[in-house]
């Protein structure tokens, strides 16, 4: 059995239909109409200890809902789940000692006091022995570069500074599993890099199992070998990012520097555009491989320079969402 086993979990939210207009408001006061939203629909997967999994999908796909269920905060309507031998929502108090959670959209730090005071509170909540606490805290302060911000009241911190403190707060008790729901939201390039490096190191050094949701595909490319793609509450793809790329990243951009003029029509070449120094080609690598193309080209023109660009992953994701109609 795997470290994390999720079997056929479903969760439906019932929301009151609110219509606009006075008459409708009055009607709904007398008789409420409800709408059932299947936020998570029969989801199953398993994750091994020490894995980093990117949990992706468009807005409203059910990512946060899944994270809430896996961290014991929400009861699912049906399905089973065993994580480190426990069912999160049934043995919540015991279970949550082993996990850390970061909800990028929410704050766990006390607003009026410095982050370090919240850290001390967490030490007492998780009953961390003083020595262990100090060494973990100092380690986090160093790796997340918190030295100058930890003594300032949290309400005076910038979003990125606060987020780094939030991440540290979730790791003080050295959890075996870490759930990150949009941990890089609102961060600048430098902070993002810092957070990514940190997560990577954490996984490597402590074998922490990490489930990460994000809308920033570079988070995924730098961190996760495996992704689970969900849409409308269902798992659409579960596997390596590489395989998905192979399936999807069929468009490649090639720019060629040449003085010769090129006349070519071949299956697989999607478009050809002349520019100042040569040509920009877009090819479908499923129909024609790059080496094939180069062979053909070198017979016809003399190539001075060549640049090959893969399709940006974000664009691929857009096409992916379109293809799955989510």
């Amino acid at each position: 059995m795997s470290f994390i086993e999720v079997k056929q979990i479903s969760k439906t939210f019932r929301v009151a239909k609110k219509k606009s207009g006075l008459k409708e408001a009055f009607k709904s006061f007398l008789k409420r109409e409800y709408l059932d939203i299947k936020a998570v629909d029969d989801i199953s997967f398993s994750i091994e200890k020490g894995e980093i999994v990117g949990y992706i999908g468009p807005n409203g796909a059910g990512k946060s809902t899944t994270i809430k269920i896996l961290s014991g905060i929400l009861n699912p309507d049906s399905g089973e789940c065993k994580i480190a031998g426990m069912t999160p929502w049934k043995e919540r108090v015991k279970y949550v000692k082993k996990i850390g959670v970061v909800f990028g959209q929410k704050s766990q730090l006390w607003w009026d006091i410095p982050a370090e005071d919240t850290f001390d509170l967490l030490r007492d909540i998780y009953e961390i022995p003083e020595e262990e606490y100090l060494s973990t805290k100092n380690d986090l302060i160093e790796k997340l570069n918190l030295k100058d911000i930890i003594n300032i009241p949290v309400r005076q911190l910038s979003l990125g500074q606060r987020m780094r403190c939030e991440i540290a707060a979730s790791l003080l008790h050295s959890p075996e599993i870490l759930f990150l729901d949009e941990p890089t939201i609102g961060l600048d390039a430098v902070s993002k890099q810092l957070v990514r490096d940190f997560i990577k190191k954490l996984n490597k050094e402590k074998q922490t199992t990490i489930i990460l949701t994000t809308h920033d595909m570079s988070d995924i490319t730098t961190l996760a070998k495996r992704i689970i793609l969900i849409g409308k509450g269902k798992v659409l793809y579960d596997g390596s990012l590489k395989k998905l790329k192979n399936m999807y990243e069929t468009e490649t951009y090639i720019s060629i520097k040449t003085k010769d003029s090129l006349n070519i029509k071949k299956k697989g070449i999607i478009s050809k555009k002349k520019n100042k120094e040569g040509y920009d080609l877009v090819i479908n690598t499923k129909l024609i491989s790059i080496s094939e193309l180069l062979t053909v080209l070198s017979h016809r023109i003399s190539i001075e320079d060549i640049e090959i660009l893969e399709e940006p992953i974000d664009k691929m994701i857009v096409r992916l969402y379109e293809d799955y109609q989510i």
Partner: peptide
């Protein structure tokens, strides 16, 4: 109202 109760629920305390 705003759901920060998530964090309170993720604590191993009553």
């Amino acid at each position: 109202r705003e759901g920060t109760i998530s964090y309170e629920l993720a604590r191993p305390k009553n």
